[in-house]
């Protein structure tokens, strides 16, 4: 691993380098038969009964002064997080499974309110296409508008358009101080009053708030709003992951245990999410995109990103 922070080893973040065996993955994916991608099976795992392949594992480089990290998509998030912690940084990816699995599913973590969505962390991807070729999308720098944004297309695409092989991600400085608090105040008052809280969770009675930054600022905010220090949240209901416009959390149905991400709109619920409708024009765009990226439907066969949507 290259932990250097200055002027050497840079071409590694440009095009071409293949220290991780991307070509081998491309060969394994091949061109003909159905194939699925496997990781640590924390998010449902590979498609049963289909030949599995695995993405490369390992960190290629951490560049603290660029705030970027380049790693194989098969790298466990915990391994990435440990390595980034050593340089005082982190990445806004939820803390289980592999980097590629987290990106393919596209669900953000509990700190989305402060850190932004997972889709914004991706700067460059190399993926293996249905034609068994390594495709590069995006670029290695923190800012880039060169060409159409295939990185955004791939985040949340569940391996239906290509298998993530290697990514360059935007990192962020670890906060100098963080503390969870609890409060019985109205969570909407809290989210409106606090300056950029990292997380505000509400279970219908109690609110948990995560504040980060300079300790004096955190303490001042807590004092001002009467927050009491608390442990981090425990386990969340896993019956359904609801995605609602943030204001609709004020009108959640009264049944079932839930933890709602206030200001974000995600509800971790005991019950499955309400049915959703997709506009026919949007479905048609999905069909056309899939048809062009995977005409024979060989990548993660049977998986549809619109599953369970009306």
């Amino acid at each position: 691993m290259d932990l250097s922070s200055h002027d050497h080893g840079l071409p590694d973040d440009g095009a071409g380098a293949d220290g991780l065996g991307l070509a081998e993955l491309a060969e394994e994916v091949g061109v003909a038969d159905p194939v699925t991608i496997a990781g640590l099976a924390t998010r449902g795992g590979p498609v049963p009964g289909v030949r599995p392949v695995m993405a490369p594992v390992g960190i290629v480089s951490i560049r603290a002064d660029e705030m970027t990290v380049r790693c194989g998509a098969g790298t466990p998030v915990s391994e990435l997080d440990d390595a980034l912690a050593a340089v005082g940084q982190s990445v806004a990816i939820p803390p289980t499974g592999t980097v590629g699995g987290a990106l393919a599913v596209g669900h953000s973590g509990l700190r989305r309110l402060g850190y932004g969505p997972i889709r914004d962390t991706v700067l460059q991807v190399r993926y293996v296409s249905a034609a068994g070729e390594v495709v590069t999308a995006g670029g290695p720098t923190v800012k880039n508008v060169s060409g159409f944004d295939l990185c955004r297309l791939l985040v949340g695409s569940r391996g239906t358009l290509g298998f993530l092989a290697e990514v360059i991600l935007r990192t962020r400085p670890r906060a100098r101080y963080e503390q969870w608090f609890t409060s019985t105040a109205d969570p909407w008052d809290l989210v409106a009053t606090l300056y950029r809280p990292t997380s505000v969770l509400w279970d219908g009675e109690r609110t948990l708030v995560l504040l980060e930054g300079d300790r004096r600022d955190v303490d001042d905010q807590a004092r001002l709003l009467g927050l009491s220090p608390a442990d981090p949240p425990g386990s969340l209901p896993t019956g359904g992951r609801w995605s609602l416009p943030p204001n609709e959390l004020q009108r959640l149905p009264p049944t079932g245990r839930f933890v709602a991400e206030i200001g974000v709109g995600i509800v971790h619920h005991e019950h499955p999410p309400p049915d959703r409708q997709v506009d026919p024009a949007v479905s048609e765009l999905h069909r056309r995109i899939k048809q062009r990226f995977d005409p024979t439907g060989r990548l993660n066969p049977g998986v549809s990103v619109l599953d369970g949507v009306g």
Binding site: G106, H107, S108, R112, P117, R119, V145, F148, D149, L150, R152, L153, V155, G156, S157, L161, R241, S243, L244, P245, P246, E261, V264, G265, I266, R276, V278, V282, L285, H286, I289, V305, L306, V309
Partner: peptide, 16 residues
């Protein structure tokens, strides 16, 4: 307006 609309991030590809 919700944080995780279903399907591909077509919003993301449209921008830019």
């Amino acid at each position: 307006e919700d944080p995780e609309p279903p399907g591909y991030d077509l919003r993301g590809v449209f921008v830019g």
